[in-house]
Structures are given as structure tokens and as C-alpha cells.
Nucleic acid binder design. Sequence first.
DNA 1: TATTGTTATACTCTATAACTATA
DNA 2: TATAGTTATAGAGTATAACAATA
Lengths: 143, 143
Amino acid sequence: MPAPINARFLESLIGYNARRAALSIIGGFMERMAMFDLKPVEFSVLSLVLHNPGITSRQLCAALGILPPNLVGLVQSLVQRGLIVRRPHPHDGRAMGLHPTPKGEALMAKAEATVIEAELEQTQRLTEAERDTLLRLLQKIYL
Amino acid sequence: MPAPINARFLESLIGYNARRAALSIIGGFMERMAMFDLKPVEFSVLSLVLHNPGITSRQLCAALGILPPNLVGLVQSLVQRGLIVRRPHPHDGRAMGLHPTPKGEALMAKAEATVIEAELEQTQRLTEAERDTLLRLLQKIYL
DNA sequence: TATTGTTATACTCTATAACTATA
DNA sequence: TATAGTTATAGAGTATAACAATA
């Protein structure tokens, strides 16, 4: 048994701990979402399209912190898979509104339920009250 | 003013919020650490070497979740900058122990103090008690 | 003149396979 | 046979510049 590593300084940093916790949870997320062939960003995009039908690429980029060039292929892929469709924006000829297809809605109904299960697994050492506190404190940082 | 986006589902997920918060804090970290030319991973490696003189590459990889091939260039770079040195391991001829140089120690004294300042800036909307709670809850997830 | 969406491209980060020297 | 460290390389993620179409 090797001498334990002293990582006290790093473990006193919110940034370090938030990154480690996020990577841990996202690891479980990816295992559970492999059956839907959805990566975290694809899931986030689909979830926002589902709950905001007609949302534009520009709005998705702003909401998720993605750069426009990096969203293009993502949207094309989701369109090709028949999960979303692009329709002309009613008031802006430059923009395209993104809408979920019935197939996309059905997939996301299952996927969102699975994500909730996965989150509870990954945070099973937290009480319900602790989960709520954690959400609130994290949002106080970035929102 | 466009209609606000409904992101309630994503914002109910610990993984999503932890990732967003981590990216926000790390953004501030990188701005403040540019004067030391230290990226987050380089800082983490230097901090562990400083507080664990003689630590091996393998131990660094395990502690930080880095894959061995990706640590090689990192260590070489820090050696070339004169911040750490590699010495043969006393009990294992395969391994090399990593030690901070006086220059590395001096840099990290300033860098760690600056990181603490940066963290307080990035989490200024949290009380001291909330910071402690947040650290504890995040560690309950991944540690 | 500014914005939406796009292409091309570069840079970084992360992951896998295979090798050597030593245990 | 297993482990520490390395090399080469592939893949994913993220970044900037520049363009056409529309506002």
C-alpha cells in the first residue's frame, strides 16, 4: 500500500471539485445514455428543442455556451437521425426554427427519465435536501 | 427582447450545473493564471508535486484522472521550464520521483495564493459557510 | 451596419495500441 | 506476468476567420 497522496490544497478549491464531480456524473450519464446514442451535448440540445419548439441555433448557442460553427454538425446529425426538423423562422428569414419530431419526442421522454435515474445513482450519497442545496449553490456561481 | 429559454430540465441536473459552474470558475482561473503561464492541469500537477515531493507519474495520473501518455509531455514541459526535476525512485528502478525546484516552489507560492483570490472572486455570491457546504457536497459525489 | 448560419481550419484535449525496461 | 514510463497516433472538443443571405 503506497503512501496516500496529499491533495488537500486542490480539494479546497471549488473549481477543482466541481470539475471532478461533473466528470464523475457525466461518466455515469454516458454509460446510461449509450443505449440512446446520445452524448451530453446532444442530449442538452434535444432537451432545449423539446421544451422550446422553434428555438434557433443562435439561442441554443447562447443557452449552452456552444460556438455557432460547432453546433452546425450537431444539428445536421440530429436532423439526419429524424429527431428534429428545421422550419423557416416565422419572423426572421435568416433563422431556422428547430422543432422536435414525434420520434424525437418519444426518444427524449425515455432519455430524460433515464437521465433522472442516472443522476440519482451518481448522487446516491446525497439526501434530497442536499441535492437541492447543491443545485442552488452551483447556480449561484454561474447563472 | 426575445422570449426567455426554458432550461428548467437541464437546470435540475447536478451534472449539468456542476459542469457549467466548473467552466465558469476555470475561465476566471485561466485569466488570473496567464501571468504564470499555467493551465489548470499544469497547476494541479505542480501543486501535487509541491505537496508530495517524490511523487511518481503513475501516482499523478491516478490522483488527477489523467492517462499516462498525456502526462508525459506535461512533465517534460515543466522540467524544461525548470519548475520540477526528475530523480530516480529510491525503491523502484522503473519509476522516477518528481520534485519541485526552488524556482518551482517560489512560483507555486505565488500561484496558489492567486488561485485562492481567483476562487473567492468567482464565488463571491457565496458565503463562507456556503463555500464549505458546496465543497463537502461535491466531494461526496466523486471522492 | 449588424446578425444568422455556414465553411474551412487550427488547436487542444482525450483515448488506444504497442513498445522498453524493470519488478 | 505485471507495472512505470514512453511513443505514435487517432478521435473528440473547442477556437478563430471569413463568407452569403437577411435584418
